[in-house]
Structure formats: C-alpha cells, structure tokens
Amino acid sequence: MHRQRAIIRTLGLAAAVALSATACGPQGSGAAPAAPSAPPAGSSPAASPSAGDDKPGEASPSASPSQSPSSSSSPSPSQSSAPGPKPLMANGDESEQVRELQARLRQLKLVSTAPTAFYGSKTTAAVRTFQSQHGLAATGSVDEATWQKVQGLSRKPTDEELRPPTTNEVDAPDPRCMQGRVMCISKESRTLAWMIDGKVVSTMDVRFGSENTPTREGLFQVEWKAKEWTSTIYHTSMPYSMFFSQGQAVHYSSDFAARGYAGASHGCVNVRDKGKLSALFDQVKVGDKVVVYW
C-alpha cells in the first residue's frame, strides 16, 4: 500500500510538471525542448496528447481452441466475400497526394479554396460533383478510375498552385460562431475569421499543428493574452499570443510567414500576417469565444 501511494504521488508530480508548459513553436525549428516552467497567473496547464492508444474495440486477437473453426464448418457468405478495393483517397485522409488532387480540382473550378492536403467535406463534395459530371460512381472518394480522369483533364500543379501565397477563401462559419465575439477558426480552409454577432470583421490565413501535435478542436475562450511571449519549451518567439486551450494559442509565426504551409506548429494556431494579428490582438478580450472546427 505504501509503495502504491508513492507511485501515485510520483506520477501526479510528473503530470503536473508536464502540464505546466506553453509548448508551441514551429516544427523542425531545431530547438531542443527545455525543462518546462509554470505559465503566468491565470493561465491553464498545457495537456500533452497521448500517442499509441488503441482504438476502441480493437483488441488484439487471441487464439483459443474454442475460437478455431472446425474442419466441417463452412464460412457464411459475409465471411467469404472479399472487401472491395480501398480508395486511393477518401474523407479524413491527409497527404501530399490529396494536396495535388485539390490543386487539380481547383484548376477544374470545382473548389475555390487553397489546397490544405486534408480530405474534408469540401473535397468530398467536389469529387462527387466531378464523378457525376463524368459518368463515374458518385462516391465522393477517389478510386483509380476517378484519379486517372482527374489527371487527364488537368495539368500537373505548380509549386505555387500547391502552396499558394494568396489569402485563403474563408469557410462557412460554424454555427457556434454566429453569436457574440468569436475567433472562428476553420481547419479545412485554414482561415481565422474575427466575428461579432455573426458579422465577419476581419480574416487571416492560419496554420495548425502536425498529426503528432494537433491543434485541439472545439469551443473555447481566450484565457489570457501576452503581446510578447516566448515558448517555455522551444524558446521560440510567440508575439501577440492569445491562449485559448491550456498551452495552445493564436499567435504570430515568423516561420509561417517565411515557409508557409511547408511547416507546422506544435499545436498553436499560427498567423503569418503580423499587421492583421496586431489589430486583432487589440480588439480581442479575455473571455471572448474561440471555435476551432473542420
């Protein structure tokens, strides 16, 4: 019993230390993590996403005699039927091939937003429209026939088409953005819209965390602000920080301004237009809503 209590106390202390840091900074910046320090008064601790959890219901199969089929049993039709071919790209995928698909669909005037490399609802709808136009099964997923048709009717995208420097078109606001003062942040269009009572006041391009350090989605509020701030883990500058979910914040990123979507944050919402963010920082108040959605 004494040993169990000691383990619990040790784990509790380790968790408290891990949750106390503001962990944002550009991926691949080369800065080695330092020992975390506590955020200023009024801030919330930063939670680290866990990696390696099994998906619910996906237990490892175990071989037991009672589970082995007898030699006289025959498989049911549902067991013997082979699954159909897996689509090349489908809703929920994220890859450079998806980025190319989106750039080609943009050439064909089926999407207007800049490529994001994430296959979301807009890409699904555009693919379904393309398939309907060309006599293909309108599944919204890209199979081999659809991909060949898209490639045949478009040209190989340029680097600028894959990662355009221009401002992204703002996505339709999430319903939670339609009341009050809200930073409405769309992961699909990679935009931030500052909205007051359903009216868009200003917009700007944003960048998010990588697959291993994702930006949290949901309804939040601005917990605290800092015009000048430095990551306590990565020692990178985070000007105009507006913290909304423990250690995650909206802030200016010189790395985003320089490299664009070739990089990623460690979970924060990066903004590359310093002038726009400076003006927004002056308007946003602690307690204002933040909505992050696909």
Rank of each mutant, 00 (worst) to 15 (best):
D205S: 13
D255C: 09
R9A: 12
G287C: 07
L13E: 01
S81L: 13
L153W: 00
D197L: 05
G30A: 05
M204L: 08
A226W: 07
E217Y: 00
K285V: 00
D197S: 13
G120Y: 08
L153I: 06
R9I: 08
V286G: 02
P56T: 00
K86S: 14
Q131H: 05
G92Q: 09
K289I: 12
K156M: 05
F244T: 13
H134F: 03
D174C: 04
K276V: 04
V98S: 10
F281E: 07
Q4W: 05
Y252L: 12
S231R: 10
Q283R: 11
C268A: 05
V170M: 02
P173I: 07
E169S: 08
G218H: 03
P164A: 03
S74D: 01
V292S: 00
P175I: 06
L136A: 07
L162R: 12
T146F: 04
H266Q: 11
H134K: 10
A32C: 02
S81C: 04
G120P: 09
D93C: 02
A82G: 08
P83V: 11
M178Y: 04
H2K: 15
A90E: 14
R176G: 06
S43Q: 06
S29P: 07
V182P: 13
L110A: 08
Q179V: 12
K149H: 09
M178R: 14
E160H: 03
T232D: 14
H266M: 06
G42P: 11
G92W: 08
C184W: 01
P49R: 13
E211P: 00
R104C: 10
G180R: 09
R272F: 06
S73H: 04
A35R: 07
D171Y: 11
L219Y: 08
E100K: 15
G42H: 05
E211R: 12
H251S: 13
D143L: 08
T191Y: 01
S245E: 15
A21I: 02
C177Q: 04
A103E: 10
W294Q: 11
A34C: 02
R155K: 12
I8E: 08
W294P: 14
K55W: 07
M204I: 01
E58L: 13
Q246K: 14
Q27I: 08
N91M: 12
P36H: 14
C24A: 14
M89A: 12
S154W: 02
G260F: 05
S37Y: 05
A21W: 09
Q148R: 15
A125P: 10
S80Q: 12
F130I: 03
L277K: 04
Q27C: 09
S43N: 06
E161V: 03
A23C: 02
